[in-house]
């Protein structure tokens, strides 16, 4: 009885370990928030997601106690016209990366209260389709002079 229990427990542990190995291993690095005029009411957040696992992961949103709402947006340039569209889900491919960078993807951070201040560190939680939640800390800093140079 004790032995079978131990075996059972061991089996469960092995199962858990196997499941964990197959789950995506996502790292979020370089998170920052662009400082903006408080009157804008919105800020853009940037970071890079890296998936070291063997399965793709799907980012479905983010939240933060500092913002009323967070959406995922993609800025783009078509024939010289700047567009911005909401994305409901973004894939981080297995073994690949998903960059959020000025001029491209950004976390659209609405109604920061109080407005984010340069130098402040702000907690964000990234939410994935499988329920995984990854906390990150983003520092607020101004757009650097060359910040627009890496748009396509």
């Amino acid at each position: 009885m004790n032995i079978s229990r131990a075996l059972l427990a061991g089996g469960v542990l092995v199962l858990c370990a196997t499941a964990a190995a197959q789950e995506p291993e996502i790292a979020a690095t370089g998170a920052w928030i662009a400082a903006a005029p408080p009157v804008a009411g919105v800020n853009a957040g940037y970071l890079e997601l890296t998936n070291k696992g063997a399965q793709s992961a799907t980012l479905t949103g983010a939240e933060s106690p500092r913002f009323a709402r967070i959406e995922m947006h993609r800025s783009d340039m078509q024939n010289g016209v700047n567009t911005m569209r909401r994305e409901s889900a973004l894939e981080v491919p297995a073994g690949g990366t998903l960059p959020f960078a000025p001029g491209g993807l950004h976390l659209m951070l609405f109604s920061g209260a109080p407005p984010p201040r340069t130098g402040e560190s702000i907690p964000l939680t990234l939410i994935f389709a499988d329920g995984v939640r990854i906390p990150v800390t983003a520092e607020v800093r101004p757009f650097s002079p060359g910040a627009g140079s890496h748009q396509h």
């Binding site: 947006h73 800025s75 911005m84 000025p102 001029g103 757009f143 910040a147 627009g148």
Partner: peptide, 13 residues
């Protein structure tokens, strides 16, 4: 003014 990305980048530049 409610543009979070291209407008502030351009005005910063």
């Amino acid at each position: 003014t409610h543009c979070p990305d291209i407008c502030p980048i351009t005005l910063s530049v």
